[in-house]
Computed example of a mutant assay.
Amino acid sequence: MASQASLLLQKQLKDLCKNPVDGFSAGLVDENNIFEWSVTIIGPPDTLYEGGFFNAIMSFPPNYPNSPPTVKFTSEIWHPNVYPDGRVCISILHPPGDDPNGYELASERWMPVHTVESIVLSIISMLSSPNDESPANVEAANGERQEMNSRGRLAAA
């Protein structure tokens, strides 16, 4: 199983090197370990993160793509969907199948069709549009709500 995961990750890394995607870069933490990637995400325009460079580690399980990787920011980041320790909490990184808590549809959770590219693009989208209904960082979610409320008052003035 690990060899299939290894081959798939090698292919995804090669594809990303051949066809880089705007907004992030990815590579291996250690050339001898295909299961741990270093990712740098550029803060999306028109967000609080614009112009920032945010580093993260993406760790893949031996049964990838049947199970999702974990993503943990190593750069400090204040965001409703990032735990205080840096772990990213978005639906596509949750185990496949039905949500035991009933918050997410199975179709929103991990599926083996996801790639490193689709994961990072989802994280960039998360930076642009936080989900503060189900926050990993309640303080950041409350700050986001306050920021949006103050922007709304400014826009209405």
Results as ranks from 00 to 15, higher is better:
residue 94 H to V: 06
residue 98 D to C: 06
residue 95 P to N: 14
residue 6 S to G: 02
residue 33 N to W: 01
residue 46 D to Q: 08
residue 14 K to N: 10
residue 87 R to P: 05
residue 57 I to L: 15
residue 79 H to A: 08
residue 150 S to G: 02
residue 86 G to T: 09
residue 111 M to N: 13
residue 6 S to N: 03
residue 36 E to Q: 12
residue 93 L to R: 11
residue 76 E to C: 10
residue 62 P to N: 05
residue 97 G to T: 07
residue 91 S to V: 07
residue 54 F to K: 02
residue 130 P to T: 06
residue 20 P to N: 14
residue 42 I to H: 05
residue 49 Y to R: 01
residue 153 R to I: 07
residue 126 M to F: 02
residue 140 A to R: 06
residue 113 V to G: 05
residue 116 V to M: 11
residue 152 G to S: 10
residue 110 W to A: 05
residue 154 L to K: 13
residue 116 V to G: 10
residue 108 E to H: 11
residue 83 Y to H: 15
residue 152 G to P: 03
residue 83 Y to K: 14
residue 55 N to W: 04
residue 1 M to R: 03
residue 134 S to D: 13
residue 83 Y to S: 15
residue 38 S to T: 15
residue 126 M to T: 06
residue 36 E to W: 00
residue 128 S to T: 11
residue 109 R to Q: 07
residue 60 F to A: 08
residue 40 T to S: 14
residue 148 M to I: 15
residue 138 V to Q: 12
residue 42 I to C: 05
residue 50 E to W: 00
residue 17 C to N: 15
residue 96 P to Y: 02
residue 132 D to G: 01
residue 34 I to G: 00
residue 157 A to N: 10
residue 99 D to N: 09
residue 150 S to T: 14
residue 136 A to H: 12
residue 133 E to A: 12
residue 143 G to K: 11
residue 89 C to T: 15
residue 130 P to H: 06
residue 4 Q to H: 00
residue 123 I to T: 05
residue 77 I to R: 05
residue 37 W to H: 07
residue 126 M to C: 12
residue 55 N to S: 14
residue 105 L to S: 14
residue 153 R to N: 08
residue 131 N to D: 15
residue 6 S to F: 01
residue 126 M to G: 04
residue 42 I to Q: 11
residue 30 D to C: 05
residue 28 L to K: 15
residue 71 V to F: 14
residue 47 T to F: 01
residue 87 R to T: 15
residue 97 G to R: 10
residue 10 Q to R: 10
residue 90 I to M: 08
residue 16 L to F: 04
residue 47 T to W: 01
residue 64 Y to N: 04
residue 146 Q to P: 00
residue 81 N to I: 09
residue 71 V to D: 06
residue 48 L to T: 12
residue 150 S to Y: 12
residue 76 E to K: 15
residue 118 S to G: 04
residue 50 E to I: 00
residue 31 E to C: 02
residue 157 A to C: 03
residue 77 I to P: 06
residue 26 A to W: 02
